Simulated scan of single mutants.
Amino acid sequence: MSVILVTGSYDHEIRFWEAWSGICSRTITRSGETGQVNRLAISPDKRYLAAAIHKKVNIYEIASSASASTPVVTFEGHTNNITSVSFHSQGKWLVTGSEDKTIKIWDLRTGNLHRNYNNEAPVNDVCVHPNQGELISCDQAGRIKQWDLSDNICTHELTPAGDVPIRSVTLASDGSCLVAGNNKGKCYVWKINDESTGQPRFQAVTKFQAHSKYLTRCLLSPDVKYLATCSADTTVKIWSISPHYEFKLEKILQGHQRWVWDCAFSADSAYLVTASSDHTARLWEMASGLTVRQYNGHHKGGTKSTLNKYQDVLKVFF
């Protein structure tokens, strides 16, 4: 099977691309439906695509025919924009975060809502801990929270910059560290300790100014050697990570003409895909920092900066 990537846009379309040829192999048009595509996620077994569309999540079969646009299941229950969507590693459940101040867990086997967390502030991002027993979220109130799935409670809370909204969080694939980026372009890094050692769960390691303008996304590579940060300044920055969690600016990826909203690494960390309000997605080679493919086709991105409504977003998953 060829490597594919998926993009979604304010034009209400979801597009599947053959990564190396740049050919759009399938378009989900969602005729008659309202709502922009906020976030995308692909299930661990590569069978399903979850698309967060305004207040709901549609689940599509990836192997369906090129003309298939009907979801196999739809999850509804949020009352405001869904800002984050992630699969459990075994594909048993899906987690969503929303501007309605809740985090919800959906059972993919029954199609029902399994659990609901009240965050008390609009949620900007949620990621599943590699141990699959915890969630890490961030919100508009400037808080980062750890949620224990077995006890159904928030067990830890961090406020690195007061009430400055935290836009994005990312966890190392081995669960060793957490990185968060805020609305002022600053990144914060914590080492995650095993509490059985008697050390604090989250140990602050460093902080640095990644961008001078609004940060939209931060993402650790699968091999935990790099951090990618996306911004309103139209650039993507690649930071190398030392064994002692020192972050050094390695490359600045330039080419997008408007805000860069999202990014995704290939499984081997050799490539990065980015998506922008300039209506394009780009495939970058990490070694050279050059664009090796550009994907054109979406006819709406965004000319506004209505951040909380996500009207400018072009999302991508690789």
Rank of each mutant, 00 (worst) to 15 (best):
S2V: 06
S2W: 00
I4R: 02
L5H: 00
T7H: 04
Y10S: 15
Y10D: 11
I14Y: 00
F16H: 01
W20V: 03
W20N: 11
S21H: 05
S21E: 07
I23K: 10
C24S: 09
S25R: 01
T27D: 03
T29G: 00
T34A: 07
T34M: 12
Q36W: 07
I42N: 01
S43K: 06
R47L: 13
Y48C: 03
A50T: 00
A52Q: 05
A52I: 01
A52S: 04
A52N: 03
V57M: 01
N58R: 02
A63T: 11
S64H: 04
S65R: 07
S69G: 09
T74C: 10
F87V: 06
Q90W: 00
G91P: 05
T96Q: 10
E99K: 08
K104E: 11
K104S: 10
I105D: 03
D107Q: 06
G111L: 07
Y117M: 12
P122H: 12
N124S: 07
N124E: 14
N124V: 01
D125T: 09
C127G: 05
C127Q: 14
V128W: 10
P130G: 08
P130W: 04
E134T: 14
I136T: 05
I136N: 02
C138I: 11
K145E: 11
L149W: 04
I153W: 07
H156I: 11
E157N: 03
T159K: 12
P165L: 13
R167L: 08
S168V: 08
V169Q: 02
V169P: 05
T170V: 09
S173Q: 13
L178Q: 06
L178A: 05
N182P: 11
N183F: 14
K184T: 15
C187L: 07
C187S: 08
Y188H: 15
V189W: 12
V189N: 09
W190A: 08
I192V: 10
N193S: 13
Q203L: 15
V205T: 13
K207M: 14
Q209G: 11
T216G: 03
R217Q: 14
C218L: 00
L220K: 02
L220Y: 05
L220F: 13
Y226N: 01
L227M: 06
L227D: 02
T229Q: 05
T234C: 06
K237P: 03
I238F: 10
S240N: 12
I241S: 09
F247G: 01
L249N: 13
K251W: 06
I252M: 08
Q254S: 10
G255I: 03
A264Q: 08
D268S: 14
S269W: 10
Y271R: 13
V273C: 09
A275V: 01
S276H: 04
R282F: 00
R293S: 03
R293M: 09
H298A: 04
H299K: 12
K300A: 15
G301H: 09
T303W: 03
K304S: 13
S305L: 09
N308D: 11
F317W: 04
